[in-house]
Computed example of a mutant assay.
Amino acid sequence: MLDALTLVTGVAALLLAAWCGFAAYRDEPTKDWHFIGMAVVTLLALVQLVVGIVQLARGEEPDQGTTIFVAYLLGAAACIPAAGFMSLAERTKWGSITVAAGAVVLAVLEVRLYDIWGG
Score class of each variant (00 low, 15 high):
D3N: 11
A4I: 04
A4T: 04
L5V: 00
L7F: 15
V8Q: 11
T9W: 08
G10A: 12
V11K: 13
A12L: 08
A12K: 07
A13H: 06
A13F: 09
L14R: 15
L15W: 12
A17S: 14
A17D: 06
A18C: 03
W19M: 04
C20L: 10
G21M: 07
Y25V: 09
Y25T: 06
K31D: 07
D32R: 15
W33K: 14
I36T: 11
V41K: 08
V41D: 02
V41I: 09
L43K: 05
V50C: 00
V50D: 00
Q55F: 12
Q55D: 07
L56P: 05
L56C: 06
A57D: 09
E60A: 13
E60Q: 11
E61W: 13
P62V: 04
P62C: 07
G65K: 14
I68L: 15
I68K: 15
F69C: 04
F69Q: 02
Y72N: 10
Y72C: 13
A76Y: 03
A77V: 00
A77I: 00
A77K: 00
A82E: 04
A83Y: 02
F85R: 03
F85A: 08
S87A: 15
L88S: 03
A89R: 11
E90D: 11
R91E: 07
T92I: 03
K93W: 07
G95A: 01
I97C: 05
T98H: 00
V99M: 15
A101C: 12
V105A: 14
V105D: 05
L106G: 07
A107I: 03
A107R: 11
A107H: 09
V108M: 10
E110D: 05
V111R: 14
L113K: 02
G119I: 02
G119V: 10
